[in-house]
Design a protein around this nucleic acid. Structure first.
Lengths: 280, 280
DNA sequence: GTCATCGTTCCGATATATGGAACATGGCGT
DNA sequence: ACGCCATGTTCCATATATCGGAACGATGAC
């Protein structure tokens, strides 16, 4: 609140005023995108200010705001000059956060794990051909990698990614890897398909995967899958640390704690699943 | 939260299984409406279960979910059978609640007022021709009226409503009241236009308004406007109490506290407004 | 193997979004 | 009072997205 570059940029000299992309493949998604811009504001705003911020044509923006207002997602100030979030939008946000027991519980597990091992940890999922960070808790240690939830990394050079690959049928894995060739990020990155297959065999045997500076120099990572009874898992959990602090041996000592956390998350997810079949 | 008839009706005996309306005038609003249904869930759900819950055609729902998923608002379980809220939706919700300093601060003022006077209070706004409860804090007293934020009441028989009417030009007021004739809710409801005009004269003189069982039998209410420098106010603040506890005399004793609260809210709102004019 | 259930795709009719241009409003300076 | 500018609003021909019945596909139960 004290220092917001966006607000500051009203003194537009010749600086680029941050286009604040509002886009999407479909009108509805553009609306969401607009809401995201709005959600980040802590002040009311005028139509014109949004026009300048987003670059959208005025009539378009006018229609969008009107639509959101008539739906109760936004509210206008008394004289109709300024918009702010509306009752309905707030309630939607509250409902989401209140009922989202899954995320809260997962996060708690992650925090506990970080406390136990003293290194940053994250929960991951396979999205397309990339690994997506669903959640992350940072260690307190001063030396650390700063990566945030929502980041994406290639599957072939991350511990979680190898786990996801390892549970696929060979043909399926081949198809996926053919789309995005094995890019080399560091000296250690496995870029040869056969070498990767061998690595994956080892992952299958061990039940866990390791990334030894294969994506970022100096970053060591160990991961296991969150088990899913009777099916492939789409959730992994990983510990990430600077090689300076965590050798392979030390990482292996973390395994029991890591597996305990994975099981805890499996239990949470199971509880959030609809009963297999309710009497109709 | 303790007793909500809507939630209670889940015990479906032979009851109608709550169609869970998903509608809106425009496709985008239908999507929001769908999100609201989803936001209230604390479990993952399948396409089919939503079809049964909402009554929407399957392909339509399929497309909607797909759209939301590809935008990152929803996530699918590993085997693609169950949906839940996605990363992006959570972040949107968090941003909204985090940045909404206005609502939080307003709520705090309201809570303090309730503590001072010992009766339920609410913040109101004029929306169309009705008064909308923006926020409300209930008293602890066992005997009380249960009304919730989001409710709407007619302007002519509520204290806040009379305040909003009082600041309009006579012609504007006439136009508004002609749309929705003065409906009689109780024996005390003012249904005569001239009588209402006289009442409004008195409201102007006094600077506050009273509802003496004009909307609900047994409900007494006193309200003032949240002042807005140089313009009409669209925000009111009111104390509501059972006549058994609060006579007109007692209500007048609350006035100083009420006005203090109104000023506090005015200060908060002023801070949330964009600077009147930044050098362009 | 057969059936039932749920997810997915197709596609023409229909409804909606789009944004340039023009119009309306209101505050400000002269 | 008057015109001027910034901002909000409306129009409307065109481009685009949605709608949902029907048919198809995948999965699992028996």
């Amino acid at each position: 609140m004290a220092y917001d570059p966006k607000t500051m940029s009203d003194t537009k000299l010749q600086s680029i005023p941050e286009p604040a992309r509002v886009d999407g493949d479909t009108p509805a998604l553009r609306l969401f995108s607009l809401l995201e811009v709005i959600a980040r504001k802590d002040q009311f705003f005028s139509l014109q200010s949004l026009v300048e911020e987003t670059g959208l044509p005025k009539p378009t923006l006018h229609r969008m705001l009107q639509q959101l207002e008539s739906a109760g997602m936004l509210q206008r100030d008394a004289d109709g000059r300024f918009y702010g979030p509306g009752l309905r939008l707030r309630r939607l946000a509250e409902d989401l956060l209140l009922n989202n027991t899954v995320h809260g519980a997962r996060h708690a597990v992650l925090r506990k794990l970080v406390e136990e091992v003293g290194e940053s940890c994250n929960i991951t999922a396979l999205s397309g051909s990339e690994v997506l960070y669903l959640d992350r808790v940072e260690t307190q240690a001063p030396l650390r990698f700063y990566l945030h939830p929502g980041s994406r990394v290639p599957a072939h050079c991350s511990a979680s990614g190898k786990l996801f690959l390892a549970q696929m049928m060979p043909a399926q894995r081949r198809r996926l890897l053919d789309q995005v060739p094995l890019e080399k990020y560091t000296a250690q990155t496995i870029t040869d398909f056969d070498a990767l297959e061998r690595e994956i065999e080892s992952v299958k045997r061990e039940g866990h995967a390791i990334d030894n500076e294969e994506f970022l120099p100096g970053l060591f990572c160990i991961a296991v899958l969150v088990p899913r009874p009777g099916g492939r898992s789409n959730t992994g959990i990983a510990i990430q640390a600077p090689v300076m602090r965590v050798s392979r041996d030390k990482a292996l000592q973390f395994l029991p704690a890591l597996k305990r956390a994975a099981n805890a998350i499996a239990a949470i997810d199971a509880a959030a699943m609809p009963a297999t079949r309710t009497a109709a």
